[in-house]
Design a protein around this nucleic acid. Structure first.
Lengths: 125, 125
DNA sequence: TACTATACCATGTGTTACACAGTAATGTCA
DNA sequence: TGACATTACTGTGTAACACATGGTATAGTA
């Protein structure tokens, strides 16, 4: 524990905060089609969104307890798996939430927009 | 307090979570030019980002204590105002953070993207 | 056969930021 | 004079996340 304690730690922290809440959106988007936790984790990782198991599993339970997801255990497969799928209510919330997300990104992109070129690197998105 | 306690409250809550961390980005973006808390609040509201004073003021203090902002009191004006401006360190963090933001939106937009056509509207991005 | 890695699920603890609800004081305008 | 806007602050509760840890069962390997 040495090496710039303030800079990276502050930035890291802010970065974490940035991802907060977004995971829910990602999960709901993926659970339009049935999936179990572990496979969902892999799917999200593949698409560029890392998520810890200790975050994902409680999240799934929570969303189910809020009525946004439905789950059932499948024992007949290679392993017992808990499959989740979005509920009708979840679909409604997802619509609202993704609309809010779009609105939010529009606002923030507007604010952050004026980026100056940092160096000579071409800004290839 | 009646009317669907679960549905709206869950969505509201998730919406709040969505905005989390984003406020920091907005604040840093606006404090490229000096500003005091109250005016910052108004500016953000004007641009579509509501922020409670009880959120903003502690946030400003926090960012200053992390070295991302600098502040000084102006007593010569109509009222005593605490002006904030981004610091060099803050600028660096802001660059990183906004890059992360762009990466995040890219990922999420990709996930959320496949929206079913609501009606007959052509899916123009 | 024994060993190990991977698949799969879960919980508990600490940290952190936010919303909300207050407190307080001074300036502006009717 | 009174009401409202301006400007700043703090404290309390809540909620979600990261991280660490525990656990079982299957697949693969030596």
């Amino acid at each position: 524990m040495a090496t710039r304690p303030s800079a990276s730690s502050a930035a890291d922290n802010l970065d974490l905060e940035l991802r907060r809440g977004v995971v829910v959106l990602a999960v709901l988007s993926q659970l339009q089609t049935e999936q179990y936790g572990y496979s969902l984790k892999k799917a999200l990782t593949d698409r560029g969104l890392e998520i810890d198991e200790g975050t994902l599993y409680p999240l799934l339970r929570r969303l189910e307890s809020q009525g946004l997801l439905q789950s059932d255990w499948r024992m007949a497969e290679a392993r017992p798996r808990r499959y989740y799928v979005i509920s009708p209510e979840g679909r409604r919330v997802y619509e609202t939430l993704s609309a809010n997300w779009r609105a939010l990104t529009r606002v923030i992109d507007e604010l952050v927009q004026p980026v100056e070129v940092t160096d000579g690197t071409p800004g290839s998105v």
